[in-house]
Computed example of a mutant assay.
Amino acid sequence: MPSFRATIQITGLRPGHAPAEVMDMAVAAVAAAHVVEANQLDIVAGVPRITVRFMVEASEFDAENLLARKAAAAMEHGVNTVATTGAVRTARRSAGKWLPL
């Protein structure tokens, strides 16, 4: 199964939400349709950034990419219910490298 990752900057929390809810929401949004391989939190230039790595059912190349983009959009939508964010970025693992979609 092809591997993808979705990354999004977290610029703030919405009132009444705890920091842990952000990653929980991101993982749950992706896991609703795909197998989540890993997740991580990084601080880049003082800004939190979360990454969720997941697999998409193998099919045709463009269809796999479309499913990955939809998963990233679902993650962005879910995370935006608990936090404010930057744009989501999606990448596909190919020959040991992450290639942007």
Rank of each mutant, 00 (worst) to 15 (best):
E60T: 03
Q40A: 13
V30F: 10
K70L: 14
V35Q: 15
A91D: 15
T84Y: 07
A74L: 12
D24W: 02
S59H: 04
A72E: 03
H77R: 10
W98K: 13
M25I: 06
R49T: 14
E37Y: 00
L41S: 10
T85A: 08
E76D: 12
T7A: 14
T11M: 05
G86Y: 05
A58L: 12
R53Y: 01
A28F: 02
P2D: 04
T81N: 13
P15E: 12
I50T: 02
T11P: 02
H34M: 10
A28V: 03
A18I: 03
G86P: 08
M55A: 13
F61S: 06
L99K: 09
R92D: 01
A29L: 05
A71V: 02
V27H: 05
R93K: 12
D24R: 11
Q40W: 03
A45D: 15
R53F: 00
A38F: 06
P19N: 11
W98E: 13
A83D: 06
T7K: 08
A83K: 05
A91S: 15
V36A: 11
I43E: 13
Q9P: 13
I8M: 03
D62F: 09
V52R: 01
A74M: 09
V35A: 15
V30G: 04
A71G: 01
T90R: 05
R92F: 06
R89S: 14
A45R: 08
T90M: 11
P100S: 13
G46S: 10
Q40L: 12
S94T: 14
A91V: 07
V56N: 02
I8H: 00
A72H: 00
A33I: 03
G12R: 07
T90E: 08
T81F: 04
I50D: 00
V47Y: 06
T81W: 02
A32K: 13
V82F: 07
A26E: 05
T84V: 11
H77C: 05
I43R: 03
E76V: 01
I43M: 12
S59K: 06
